[in-house]
């Protein structure tokens, strides 16, 4: 391969490949959960506002898996509001309070489901704030902790059904 890639020494290239492959395997084994990251310089398909990338301490990317596609949204509200674009079953990787451990929401035969205890925060008024204020948590305690840390007043904990109704209202 090196002979076809003049900028890289063959042996070094292969060593690098092995190293990176090992790192990926270790990372996968360590974190277990799928934490897709799609960094292309695009806007949210729904609100057309810039996508917010994950940081080391906080996930922000909401990824919708539809067939072989993985589409990134800015927040869970945007996913629910844009769901009519997709005709089949969906899996949504929604950021939780823990980086690298998204909450998995599913739409199967048109019906949404979430892991027990999942709550939603949805207090934003304008989409410039949606990534910060429309989020998913494993519990009400975690939601309140996040709201306090981010100075979000009037933070209300919503169930999945309540969240879907909120979205339908707008």
């Amino acid at each position: 391969m090196g002979s076809k890639s003049p900028q890289h020494n063959s042996t070094n290239g292969k060593t690098m490949k092995t190293t990176i492959l090992s790192m990926i395997l270790v990372a996968t084994a360590t974190f277990g959960a799928i934490a897709p990251a799609y960094a292309h310089d695009a806007d949210c398909p729904f609100c057309k506002t810039k996508l917010v990338q994950n940081t080391e301490t906080q996930d922000n990317e909401v990824v919708v898996k539809f067939g072989n596609k993985k589409i990134e949204y800015r927040c869970v509200y945007c996913v629910f509001a844009d769901q009519k674009k997709f005709s089949g079953d969906l899996i949504v990787y929604a950021p939780s309070e823990t980086a690298g451990k998204p909450i998995i929401l599913k739409r199967t035969a048109g019906k949404w489901s979430a892991p027990d205890g999942t709550v939603f925060l949805n207090t934003f008024k304008r989409h410039k704030d949606c990534a910060e204020q429309s989020r998913t948590f494993t519990s009400k305690v975690q939601l309140e902790k996040y709201a306090k840390a981010n100075s979000i007043s009037n933070a209300k904990s919503l169930t999945l059904d309540e969240m879907l109704k909120e979205v339908a209202k707008k």
């Binding site: 391969m1 076809k4 890639s5 900028q7 890289h8 290239g13 292969k14 690098m16 490949k17 990176i20 492959l21 990926i24």
Partner: peptide, 12 residues
């Protein structure tokens, strides 16, 4: 598809 570095992705 034998994943390696992207600088050589058109090779692998």
């Amino acid at each position: 598809e034998v994943k390696g570095d992207h600088p050589e992705c058109n090779d692998w």
